[in-house]
Design a protein around this nucleic acid. Structure first.
Lengths: 216, 216
DNA sequence: TACTTATGTTGACAATGACAACATAAATGT
DNA sequence: ACATTTATGTTGTCATTGTCAACATAAGTA
C-alpha cells in the first residue's frame, strides 16, 4: 500500500514511512507541547504524543527514560524561551533599565498566556526536583540571569535602589510571575472584577512594583 | 487491641466496620489532602484515597462526581484557609494596614510552604474552569476580599496610595503569590543563591512591594 | 561481510478512573 | 409495624495508560 520509489540519497519519499524517524526526540517534544496546551498536563498521554507523531506507543522510550523525562524536556524549552525574552527586552531598550523591566515583564506575561500549561509544568511541582534534569536547572538559571543583568544595570545608573541584587530581582520576578499565574489560572477574571486589557494590566502592576525598586 | 465498650446511642463499636461510614465526604477530602502532599497531584489516585479511608474503590463516587470533583473540594479548603489567614492578620494588627499586609503575606507564604501541592492544585490549571465549582469560586473571592479590606483601610488612613483598590490589591497578591510559588517550585533554592530564612525573605520582599504601594 | 549499536514495533502487565449491577442501611409514609 | 424509597457502600468489569520485555530493522563499524 505504500509508495514504490526510493531515491538514492533522499533516502525516503514523502509517503513512505521509513523505519527510522528523522529526529524523533525533537518531534516528540514539539508534538507534546501542542497536545499539552490543548488540555492540561494531567491529561497529556505519552501514547497520544506517539500517535500524533506517527510512531508506536513505545517508541518514545528510546528517547526519554519515562514520561516525566519528556515533560522535563518541554519545561526546558519553556525556560529557554523565557530567557530569550529577557535578552530581547534588554537589547530593545539599551540604557533604559526601567523600560527593560517593563518590557520583560510584559513579554513574560504574554509568554505565559500563550503557553499556560507549559508554564504550569515549569513551576507546578510536577517535576520533583530540578536537580535530576540538568538542562532544566541551567535553563532556569539562564532566565533569571537575564533579570539580574537588568537590575544591576539599573543600580549602576542609579535608577534602582542600591543593595542586594538578588533580592530586587526576586521581587520583580515574583510580581510578574505571580501576576501571570493568577491570570492564567483564571483568578483575575473570576475573583477580581478587573477588566483591563493585558498590556495595560502588566504595565500598571509593573509600575507599582517599579516604585518599590526605583531609587526614589 | 481497641476499647471494647459500645454505648447505646454510640451505635457502633470500634472494631466493627459499619456499612455506612460516618461522614465519608469529609474523610475523603481529609485523606486526599494528606496523600496529595506526600507526592503531587499527578500521582494522587482516587483508589489510594479510598483505601486510606478504608472503603472500596468505588465508594468515593457516591460523594464526588469524579476525581476532579474531589480535587475541587480540596482546593476549596485551601482557599478557605487562605481567607482565614487574611482575616487573622487584620485582627492581629488593628489599625495598622502595613503590618496587616506584611503579616498576611508571611502567613500566605507559610501556608504555601505547608501545603505546596494543594497550592499548585488551587492555581495550577488542574481544575479547568472554576465556574463549574461554585464553592471554589466563592472561597476564592472570599480570600481576595480579605486583601481588599486591608488595602481599603490603608487608603482611608492615607498610608496607601489612593486609586484603584483592585489594582493595588492585585499587585500585592501577585508579589506574595509569585514569591510563594517560586519558592515551593524550588526556583529560589535552585536558581537563586539566596540563603535567607523564610520569614526574612517574606518581609524583605513585602517591604519592597510596600514601597510601591505606600503613599510616599 | 559480520558484529554491534541505535531505533522502532508488538505484546504484555499492573494501576487507574469510571461505570453498572448488586447489597445494605437509613429515611419516610402509611 | 411494615413496605417503599432513597442514600450509601461493594464487587466486578472495561478502556486507557505508563512501562517493560522480546523481537525487528536499520545504520555504523571493524
Amino acid at each position: 500500500m505504500k509508495t514504490k520509489q526510493a531515491s538514492n540519497e533522499d533516502f525516503q519519499s514523502d509517503e513512505s514511512k521509513p523505519y527510522h524517524h528523522g529526529d524523533l526526540q525533537q518531534k516528540l517534544i514539539c508534538a507534546a507541547r501542542e497536545l499539552l496546551e490543548q488540555n492540561n498536563v494531567a491529561s497529556l498521554s505519552l501514547r497520544a504524543v506517539a500517535k500524533k507523531v506517527g510512531v508506536s506507543h513505545s517508541a518514545p522510550y528510546r528517547h526519554f527514560k519515562d514520561k516525566e523525562s519528556l515533560l522535563a524536556g518541554i519545561a526546558a524549552v519553556g525556560f529557554n524561551e523565557l530567557a530569550s525574552k529577557m535578552l530581547e527586552a534588554v537589547s530593545m531598550y539599551p540604557d533604559d533599565p526601567v523600560a527593560q523591566l517593563q518590557e520583560a515583564g510584559y513579554e513574560y506575561m504574554k509568554l505565559a498566556m500563550k503557553n499556560p500549561q507549559c508554564m504550569q509544568l515549569m513551576f507546578g511541582n510536577i517535576l520533583p526536583c530540578h536537580e535530576a534534569y540538568p538542562e532544566l536547572q541551567s535553563s532556569g538559571e539562564f532566565a533569571f540571569n537575564g533579570l539580574k543583568i537588568i537590575i544591576e544595570a539599573g543600580q549602576s545608573k542609579g535608577v534602582f535602589k542600591a543593595g542586594n541584587v538578588e533580592l530586587l530581582a526576586l521581587t520583580a520576578w515574583s510580581t510578574i510571575h505571580g501576576l501571570s499565574i493568577l491570570f492564567i489560572s483564571g483568578q483575575i477574571e473570576e475573583t477580581i472584577s478587573l477588566s483591563v486589557d493585558i498590556k495595560e494590566l502588566a504595565f500598571s502592576v509593573s509600575e507599582i512594583m517599579l516604585n518599590g525598586i526605583k531609587s526614589n
